[in-house]
Structures are given as C-alpha cells and as structure tokens.
Amino acid sequence: MGNSRAYPVFRTTDKPAAFAQAVRLCALLARRDDEVYLTADLLTVADVRQMAAALPGTKVCVKVRTDPSGGSVWADLDLTTAADSELQPRLPLHIGEFYPARSADQRFLTALGEGTASVQWSGSWPEDPDADQHGSAKYDGVQVVFHGDQAQADRWTEHHTVFVHVSNRGDLPRARKLAAHTGGEVLGEAQLGW
C-alpha cells in the first residue's frame, strides 16, 4: 500500500536535456512498461492544437479546471475535432492518459507549451544483491516534470525536474546509485510519488 517515493536527481531549464536525462535513467530499468503516463496543462488553443497534432486521432478525457465553483469538471472532448470556440472558454485544459511508450513520448515533448506537464515511465529497477535491494513493479520508475519541481506537479516553475521513483519506504541509497549512473545526484528530500 502507499505511494512511491520520488527523489529529484536532475534539474534544468532545457526541456530536451531533461527529457534526455530521463531516457538515460529509463535505460537502467530492468523491466519497463509498454505504456507511459502523460499529463499536460494546455494553456492556449495553440497548445491544444499542437498536442492534437502530436497524438493524432487520440480522444482524451480533458479535465476542465474552470468550473465556477472552483472545482473540476470533466469534459469528453476530441482535441482533433473540437472547434476553437469550444476550447477557448474551457482553458486551461488538463490531459492525463496512458500512451504506447515508444510512439508518444518524443512527440509529446515537441508539442509541449508552457504549462506544467510530465512523462512517467513505470517499470522495476534491477536487483542489487550487494545492498539487498529488490525492484518493485508497483513503485519503480522515472518521471520528468516540465515546469515543475514537485513529483505531484502542483505548481509552475521555470525549470524541469527528473525524478527516480523507489519503494514506498524510500530508498535513498538506490536513488543515489541511479543518479550517479547518469552523472547526477539526489537534489533533495524524497517526495510523494505515484
């Protein structure tokens, strides 16, 4: 039970550099899921159009965060066919969806606007007999948060942060080893992960 613990291991203002570092960390996973989880805040109609072009034909549930009561409502919109006049009053929009890993993540990167977004790769870290550490398909993985410094991506920042996710008890030694494999280091305390 519980959530993974996410350790920040890389931070930059360069989106492609953050993405590349996350991909390098993914290469260390002993097993990686076939899908990634993508989230994005789409701030403008242009952002919506770019995302629809990057993931053509994809119909997603869009979380509309402009409910008058301050809450969130869900709208079932097809981003490829919705008219600008239908999108504009609902901005900002939030998408969150699983996509095939090899076909969506790089296209997603090129379609990002200035809103907070993330790519999450789940899998399991390799066994580490020297440290008596075992991989966990429930908790392990890599995440890059664009325009954010929190694994839960709750506030906008200028920089982009890469996280390694480990067991729900936290595993600082494993996080340090993983970061070191790609020339990085743990940059802060463990955060609540997925």
Rank of each mutant, 00 (worst) to 15 (best):
N3E: 03
N3Q: 02
R5I: 05
A6S: 05
Y7W: 01
Y7T: 00
F10I: 02
F10Q: 00
R11F: 05
T12P: 02
P16D: 08
A17F: 15
A20T: 14
A20L: 14
A22K: 07
C26T: 10
C26M: 09
L29S: 03
L29G: 06
A30E: 13
R31K: 05
R31G: 09
D34A: 15
D34C: 06
Y37Q: 08
T39G: 08
A40I: 12
A40T: 10
D41H: 14
D41K: 14
L42E: 14
L42D: 04
V45K: 07
D47H: 07
M51C: 09
M51K: 07
A53N: 03
A54F: 04
P56Q: 03
T58N: 00
C61M: 11
V62D: 01
K63I: 12
V64D: 11
R65M: 09
G70R: 03
G70W: 08
G70N: 08
G71C: 07
S72C: 13
V73T: 08
V73H: 02
W74Y: 12
W74M: 06
A75L: 01
L77E: 06
T80Y: 06
T81F: 11
T81A: 11
T81I: 06
D84M: 11
E86V: 15
L87G: 01
L87K: 03
L87D: 04
Q88W: 10
P89M: 12
P89I: 13
P89D: 14
P89H: 13
L91S: 06
I95F: 12
I95S: 10
G96C: 01
E97R: 01
E97G: 00
Y99A: 00
Y99P: 00
P100L: 06
A104T: 02
D105C: 12
Q106D: 08
F108G: 04
T110A: 15
A111I: 13
A111R: 05
G115C: 12
T116W: 12
T116A: 15
A117P: 10
Q120I: 08
Q120G: 00
E127D: 15
D128H: 11
D132H: 08
D132W: 04
Q133I: 03
A137G: 02
G141V: 00
G141S: 00
V142I: 14
Q143F: 01
V144M: 03
G148Y: 03
G148M: 10
D149G: 07
A151I: 06
Q152N: 07
W156I: 04
W156R: 04
T157E: 14
E158S: 09
H159S: 15
H159R: 10
H159D: 15
H159M: 08
H160I: 12
H160R: 12
V162R: 02
V162S: 07
V166P: 00
N168F: 05
N168P: 04
D171A: 05
P173I: 04
A175I: 01
A175Y: 01
R176E: 07
H181R: 09
T182W: 13
V186E: 00
G188L: 14
Q191I: 06
L192A: 13
W194H: 07
